[in-house]
Simulated assay, not measured.
Amino acid sequence: MPVRVVESSAPSQVSDFTPGMHTFECWTGCSLAPFFFSPYAFSGTQNVSSLQKEEAWRVNVRIQGCDLEHGYLCGTMEALNVPMADTPVVTFWEGEIVDTINYTFFTGKWEATPEDDKKHWDKFLSFAPFKSQVEFDGGKTVDLSNYPYIFMRWKEQYFVNVGTDCGLTIAGFYYVCFSCSDGSISGYYYDPNSSPFQKLELKSTNEGRSGFSFSSYELQ
């Protein structure tokens, strides 16, 4: 469907949640409400350090929508202090929820092998209880229904506000873990042609049932 992006110059207030909006509460024993109501904002850093230098970008993420039945969610990611870009760089991404119904721990695309998958998931302490089963069958028989963490993959699809000549690549994708207890997100970026294991660390920027975020990107 067509996508229209609207940016506001002032912080946007996230009002009380709309009745009928999907949450993970109906799917998992721990409630992710209000964190995955759409839209919802997170802020933090992505460590992009290389052997040559230490570097981290400030990152804002907004969840724009999710479809639990199909294990899908989407949103925008904004990198604020990218050295080679004159402005913050915004990308639109789509995500896969590892629910062992629609998606398993094995990616099966984006140049990721099962060995790549295991190496990246193994970075999360919360993955440890499933390691042996995932090595056996990709975790197809793992029961995640009452687990206090949600595993996902986020794949950036295109640049929103800059051209492909901005000096960045979106060829890779993120292995992501969401904590139900505090709404924090951690992740690792995978791209065979980029620095390995770039760590993403995000915390919710919304409080209670309402709050404020840095900038607003509305997808319709």
Rank of each mutant, 00 (worst) to 15 (best):
P11K: 08
P11F: 03
P11Q: 11
P11H: 05
P11E: 13
P11D: 13
P11V: 14
S12T: 14
S12E: 14
Q13M: 02
Q13G: 01
Q13T: 01
Q13L: 04
Q13R: 01
Q13H: 00
Q13I: 05
V14N: 03
V14K: 02
V14G: 04
S15A: 12
S15C: 06
S15Y: 07
S15H: 04
D16E: 03
D16Y: 05
D16I: 02
D16S: 02
D16L: 05
F17T: 01
F17L: 09
F17G: 07
F17S: 09
F17D: 08
F17P: 01
T18H: 06
T18F: 12
P19R: 06
P19V: 12
P19F: 10
P19A: 06
G20N: 09
G20Q: 06
G20W: 02
G20R: 03
M21I: 03
M21Q: 14
M21Y: 08
M21L: 11
M21G: 11
H22V: 05
H22T: 06
H22R: 13
H22D: 14
T23Q: 01
T23R: 00
T23I: 00
T23W: 00
F24C: 14
F24Q: 13
F24A: 14
E25G: 00
E25S: 09
E25N: 05
C26E: 13
C26D: 11
C26H: 10
C26W: 11
W27K: 03
W27E: 04
W27D: 02
W27C: 08
W27Y: 10
W27T: 00
T28N: 07
T28I: 03
G29Y: 06
G29L: 12
G29S: 07
G29T: 03
G29K: 03
G29W: 02
C30R: 01
C30V: 03
C30M: 08
C30K: 01
C30H: 05
C30I: 04
C30Y: 05
S31V: 03
S31D: 11
L32C: 09
L32D: 15
L32P: 00
A33Y: 13
A33M: 10
A33R: 07
A33I: 05
A33K: 10
A33H: 08
A33T: 08
P34C: 04
P34G: 08
P34Y: 05
P34I: 02
F35R: 09
F35I: 01
F35D: 15
F36R: 00
F37A: 03
F37D: 07
F37T: 02
S38G: 04
S38V: 01
P39A: 15
P39L: 14
P39T: 13
Y40F: 12
Y40L: 04
A41H: 04
A41L: 06
F42A: 08
F42D: 13
F42N: 11
F42C: 05
F42Q: 09
S43R: 04
S43A: 13
S43D: 13
S43N: 09
S43I: 07
G44H: 12
G44N: 12
G44P: 08
G44Q: 12
T45P: 01
Q46T: 10
Q46P: 03
Q46S: 08
N47I: 03
N47W: 14
N47Y: 13
N47Q: 09
N47H: 13
N47M: 07
V48I: 15
V48P: 15
V48T: 15
V48Q: 15
S49R: 15
S49H: 15
